[in-house]
């Protein structure tokens, strides 16, 4: 009853081989997990940059048109723009800042976009004479040029990924017109 049947069960060689096989199968899985962690960290930084870029551009667009003149603000040098609007003061902080241990640098470029408006103008007297015939309202197309009524706002946030020295960037652009609010 106490004799052990040596032919049943597994040999040490079998167990060793099975473990080696399993270990080799785990290598690519660990590799994928590592890549996934890196990708998550990258995405996390990108999302932070996108949010930061949105927040700063939204704030810049809240400033009255004349409060931010054409120029470049922020970048390597920190800069705080202040506006004393009727609704209250707004601050916009640009330049380097650290969020959750990652350094982001924001820069705002404001430039003037010259505009040529194509305006179909009518003759009020012709319209008064034939109000139901628009074709006879004496239409003429006028091209009218303007400068300093339409500004382009470009906000760029730069950062670096973990273990990389290459700068990554995210840019948002919008326009603001000199309109009566």
């Amino acid at each position: 009853m106490k004799t052990i049947n040596r032919s049943t069960g597994m040999t040490l060689t079998e167990v060793m081989l099975a473990m080696a096989l399993l270990a080799s199968a785990f290598i690519p899985i660990i590799g994928v997990m590592g890549t996934s962690i890196k990708a998550t960290d990258k995405d996390d930084r990108t999302i932070k940059a996108v949010n930061l870029c949105q927040e700063k551009l939204n704030r810049a667009l809240q400033f009255p048109f004349t409060s931010i003149s054409v120029g470049t603000y922020g970048g390597a040098t920190a800069k705080t723009l202040k506006s004393n609007a009727a609704a209250g003061s707004i601050n916009l902080i640009l330049g380097p800042e650290t969020i959750d241990g990652v350094q982001f640098t924001s820069q705002l470029d404001v430039s003037d976009v010259p505009v040529t408006f194509q305006v179909p103008t009518y003759d009020p007297f012709a319209k008064g004479e034939q109000p139901n015939t628009p074709a006879n309202w004496g239409w003429t197309n006028q091209n009218i040029n303007f400068t300093n009524v339409y500004h382009k706002y470009v906000l760029t946030v730069t950062w670096q990924d973990k273990g990389s020295k290459a700068n990554k960037f995210y840019t948002l652009a919008s326009h603001k017109a000199k309109i009566r609010r």
């Binding site: 996108v50 949105q54 551009l57 505009v115 408006f117 305006v119 009524v149 339409y150 382009k152 840019t171 948002l172 652009a173 919008s174 326009h175 603001k176 017109a177 000199k178 309109i179 009566r180």
Partner: peptide
């Protein structure tokens, strides 16, 4: 997000022309 900001920028120009 980029497209949204750019489209909004153009509505500013349209409003300016109207004003």
């Amino acid at each position: 997000i980029k497209l949204d900001y750019l489209a909004h920028g153009l509505t500013e120009l349209a409003l300016l022309k109207f004003q």
